[in-house]
Design a protein around this nucleic acid. Structure first.
Length: 580
RNA sequence: CGGGAUGUGGCUCAGUCUGGUAGAGCGCCGCGUUCGGGACGCGGAGAUCGGAGGUUCAAAUCCUCUCAUCCCGACCA
């Protein structure tokens, strides 16, 4: 590709509305342009990267036996009504009507459509398993799109759906995808980690997220320094250290104490001169419309996903101020487990069994209680792991040390089970002629998000640093033959040679000053730069720069193809990649 | 949806408080010089100051409404 005939509108300054590096650099390198909030145009360079990611994903999906299809973006409401998601999915689902006043939506995901397709075609266990995937544009009307391609409303995603006749098959499909994902992300050249994720009502280890490790990630991962354990913060189990059950132990009679104006844990502690670990924090939630209370120690954080899963709910949110008043007869800040409305089941974090004589809210304005015993003074519906893991906690699998890292979710594998097949009657006849629902799994990869996360993980003050596997072009050949026709001619010759090798090259043959060419090559982040100048030509060499390390070497012009091939191989290898 | 902020040539911003003929840098076009890390000189084009209404002799500037975008929060594969 000749840059003189290409379209790369670079920017010298950061766009005003970009916050994160990937957004700034994608804009500055002329790869994307915003059309409207959360919706972007992909320019030639950006599209090339997206397509390269998609192609790697496609190859690994095919290799794993999945079959590519293409499903519509516009979906009829009645399918969504079948699964109940038309009502449940909420504002994120962009709905509209056609000229006949029929309801439609833009697909944020395709479980309904794929299940509908399969149920019409597959009737026998002999046709199973089947795994269908597509690479396509999704639309989710995010409450708050941000960070450029990282969290857009419209984005490109690969989604796959597997259908199996039994549990063993479903498990195999799941782990086949898990393996394919590892291969795909490795080939893309990103540092990533599969982590256990929340699988809602399904339970077990049948949900993993693939995280690209980057400082700027929105998610936090808890991982073990000594074993393989890694989990999303919301999923990470907390193991309570052994100790005697103190819920029935002796404790002075509970008494109320006035704590005027003390709402927060810190304020109460300061007022009563106790440490936060002597306090019980009582948090009121609404799960699927019903109130629930969760108890954790004053110095801990309650994990709402764990509480939601414990009570088997779908949607959990904090009780609003009015509800708190109704349930506790007090303003926010004075809720406690003792004397709470009987309509509210109280669940306590397991850790609370290990001590007694607590301080807690009194369900009365400006008042707390002390000497509270959970066994004596309140009714606890159950004890369970309810809190968020902390770096000081032990690894739940091996007891080792835990560390926290930031990550960007770029893939998710999930066992769906019968959720959709039952509701939509996607059934088949088994070996015994019995009708059974298919067992499903779904597997997503954020294709456009990967391009952004590659930049989040690899950039410097001069611009992007793309892995060669997904760079818009692997190499940029820069000709400094301004008025030196010999240089220009030789560059042409080299370009032809590189093209002949089948290498993806950009040829900077523009009439620009050298500084401009260098700066733009760095900004765009071609992993390899070849610079041919007058002096080099005279000395029979061309300069080769590794964008990642900045290392420059000289390649001989005699035998250029061979020297270049060897250098190129080294660059790929340094990224942990194989040349194709 | 709550809190905060911003809308001025293609881009980044000044000008708004204190109303008086719309600015700079970058980019773009032309000419010349320059040519190994985003050059320089000269000459140009390009803006109904987000939109609507109002106050005023006069509005980018003051008032009202509205739209859009961004940030924080809640939310989210």
């Amino acid at each position: 590709m000749r840059l003189s005939k290409y379209y790369v509108p670079t920017l010298k300054e950061d766009p005003a509305d970009a916050e994160v590096v990937s957004h700034k650099l994608l804009m500055r390198a002329g790869m994307i342009r915003k059309l409207t909030s959360g919706i972007y145009n992909y320019l030639p360079l950006g599209l090339r990267s997206v397509n390269k990611v998609a192609q790697i994903v496609r190859e690994e999906m095919d290799r794993a036996g999945a079959l590519e299809v293409l499903l519509p973006t516009v979906q009829p409401a009645d399918l969504w009504q079948e699964t109940g998601r038309w009502d449940y999915y909420g504002r994120e689902l962009l709905r509209f009507k056609d000229r006949h006043d029929r309801d439609y939506c833009l697909g944020p995901t395709h479980e309904e459509v794929i299940t509908d397709l399969v149920r019409g075609e597959i009737k026998s266990y002999k046709q199973l398993p089947v795994n269908l995937y597509q690479i396509q544009t999704k639309f989710r009307d995010e409450i708050r799109p941000r960070f450029g391609l990282m969290r857009g409303r419209e984005f490109i995603m690969k989604d796959a759906y597997s259908f199996d006749k039994d549990e063993e098959g479903a498990e195999k499909s799941y782990f086949d995808m898990f393996g394919a994902y590892k291969k795909a992300f490795s080939r893309i050249g990103l540092r990533f980690k599969p982590v256990q994720a929340d699988s809602g009502a399904i339970g077990g280890d049948f949900s993993h997220e693939f995280m690209v490790l980057a400082e700027t990630g929105e998610d936090t991962i808890a991982s073990c320094k000594s074993c393989e354990f890694a989990a999303n913060l919301e999923k990470a189990k907390v193991v309570v250290p052994d100790g005697p059950d103190m819920t029935a132990a002796d404790c002075p009679a509970m008494e109320e104490v006035a704590t005027p104006g003390a709402h927060t844990v810190d304020e109460v502690c300061a007022f009563l001169s106790v440490t936060p670990d002597k306090l019980i924090k009582t948090l009121l939630f609404v799960v699927d419309g019903r109130p629930v209370a969760g108890l954790v120690r004053g110095d801990r954080e309650l994990n709402d996903v764990k509480l939601r899963n414990l009570v088997g709910g779908n949607e959990i949110e904090f009780a609003d101020e009015a509800l708190v008043r109704k349930l506790t007869n007090a303003p926010v800040g004075f809720a406690g487990p003792a004397g709470l409305s009987k309509d509210v089941p109280v669940y306590a974090d397991s850790e609370l069994k290990l001590a007694t004589d607590w301080v807690a809210g009194a369900n009365k304005g400006d008042t707390h209680v002390r000497h509270l015993s959970l066994g004596r003074d309140c009714e606890v519906a159950g004890y369970a792991d309810l809190r968020v893991i902390e770096p000081t906690d032990a690894c739940p699998e091996c007891g080792g040390e835990i560390e926290f890292t930031k990550g960007i979710e770029v893939g998710h594998v999930f066992k769906l089970g019968l959720k959709y097949s039952e509701k939509m009657e996607a059934t088949f006849l088994d070996e015994n002629g019995k009708t059974k629902p298919m067992i499903m799994g779904c597997y997503g990869i954020g294709v456009s998000r990967i391009v952004a996360s590659a930049i989040e993980q690899n950039y410097d003050e001069n611009g992007c640093i793309f892995p060669p596997s997904i760079a818009p072009f692997e190499v940029c050949l820069i000709s400094l033959g301004g008025k030196d026709q010999d240089v220009a001619d030789k560059a042409e010759e080299l370009y032809a040679e590189i093209m002949q090798m089948g290498v993806d090259a950009a040829f900077d043959d523009r009439k620009e000053r050298p500084g401009v060419k260098f700066a733009e090559a760095d900004l765009i982040g071609y992993p390899m730069q070849l610079v041919l100048g007058g002096k080099g030509l005279k000395n029979g060499i061309i300069e080769a720069k590794d964008r990642k390390t900045g290392e420059k070497i000289e390649l001989p012009l005699d035998n250029f193809a061979e020297a270049f091939a060897a250098w190129r191989k080294r660059i790929w290898n340094n990224w942990g990649l194989e040349t194709n």
